[in-house]
Simulated scan of single mutants.
Amino acid sequence: MGGSVIIGIHGLANKPPEEEKARWWRAAIAEGFARNAAAAAADFTFDFVYWADLRYDEPLAGGRNLEPYRAVDGVGAFPRFDPEADAGRTSLTGRLYRTLGRVESATGLTLLDDAILEYRLDDLWNYHKDRDFREAARSRLAACLARHRGRRILLAAHSMGAIIAYDCLRLLDRGGRGVRVEHLVTLGAPLGLVEVRQEIEAEHGQARMPDSARAWTNLSDPGDVATVAARLGEDFAPNSRGARALDVPVHNAYRRPDGAPNRHKSYGYLRTPEFSEIALAFLGA
């Protein structure tokens, strides 16, 4: 595994301190390996891109962090996606959004997306409006990718981190800087929102899979509001090699300390059997 690295980039909202957040991401991945495949893989190389400090003066610490990483009691694999139990929970919401999304695409009006982005995905709203913030976040990921030039890279991008990752890869396509991502894995990505795709098209041209990624898998839980429009294989054209995004539904089993589910949480996505299989195959384990 010496020539391979898993790089993570976190999603929206304030986060714990950088070192702690990176350690928790790695622990969640390793927990998934152990539970889903009985594979320790403790020696995998991991790097992390942290950008929360660009938006928040102080990280979440102590009791302010209401959703920490904690290993789950028990043994055996985490639950896989169940088409009947999982898809049925929000299929109506997804169909409704896609119907409204077609109207938004046709008219150019994005009132629904405006509400989702401004009130539920505030950081992403500001990412589109604040050029300095946007460029600083992209620069951190670009610098991390450059550090690992020449290695095989799996880039795991959660939530708004998937937007940053996508934009960064499209810019690398344009710049010809020789960085190649073996596998882009987006987790709980809001890339399917009409307004997000409009922003992509305004900056990069056609919404399509980046040429600098050899493979792209999009993992989404149907109960995750950020992925209500998650049909990236349909909405994003193939890249110049004919490769396109593969949409894979998953069951995000993360629960807050009070027992309430959070289908959008990064740790839950990182522990899914589907992510473990992708990452272990990438690592050759």
Rank of each mutant, 00 (worst) to 15 (best):
residue 1 M to G: 13
residue 128 H to S: 14
residue 161 G to E: 06
residue 268 G to P: 03
residue 262 N to C: 06
residue 96 L to T: 14
residue 164 I to W: 01
residue 178 G to A: 02
residue 162 A to L: 09
residue 42 A to V: 10
residue 104 E to N: 03
residue 104 E to R: 01
residue 115 A to C: 09
residue 23 R to D: 09
residue 237 A to S: 12
residue 231 R to Q: 13
residue 123 D to I: 01
residue 220 S to A: 15
residue 145 L to G: 01
residue 135 E to R: 15
residue 258 D to P: 05
residue 95 R to C: 09
residue 239 N to K: 05
residue 257 P to Q: 10
residue 269 Y to G: 02
residue 51 W to N: 04
residue 85 A to F: 12
residue 194 V to C: 06
residue 240 S to I: 01
residue 197 R to L: 11
residue 178 G to F: 03
residue 173 D to E: 04
residue 212 S to I: 00
residue 18 E to Q: 13
residue 116 I to K: 06
residue 240 S to T: 08
residue 178 G to S: 04
residue 52 A to Y: 00
residue 81 F to I: 10
residue 91 S to L: 12
residue 98 R to H: 13
residue 275 F to A: 06
residue 250 V to H: 01
residue 277 E to K: 14
residue 153 I to M: 03
residue 215 A to E: 12
residue 206 Q to H: 07
residue 61 A to I: 08
residue 6 I to W: 03
residue 197 R to N: 09
residue 17 P to Q: 04
residue 39 A to L: 13
residue 280 L to M: 12
residue 226 A to M: 10
residue 120 R to Q: 15
residue 125 W to H: 15
residue 265 K to Y: 04
residue 95 R to P: 04
residue 189 A to L: 08
residue 125 W to L: 05
residue 212 S to P: 02
residue 74 G to V: 02
residue 204 H to D: 07
residue 140 R to H: 09
residue 271 R to S: 07
residue 95 R to D: 15
residue 113 D to M: 07
residue 127 Y to S: 01
residue 25 W to A: 11
residue 234 E to D: 14
residue 83 P to E: 09
residue 131 R to K: 13
residue 42 A to Y: 08
residue 86 D to W: 05
residue 109 L to V: 11
residue 285 A to W: 11
residue 172 L to N: 11
residue 115 A to D: 10
residue 229 A to Y: 00
residue 250 V to L: 03
residue 55 R to K: 11
residue 241 R to L: 11
residue 42 A to W: 03
residue 90 T to W: 12
residue 192 G to Q: 08
residue 63 G to V: 08
residue 161 G to K: 00
residue 240 S to A: 13
residue 228 V to A: 15
residue 261 P to I: 08
residue 54 L to Q: 09
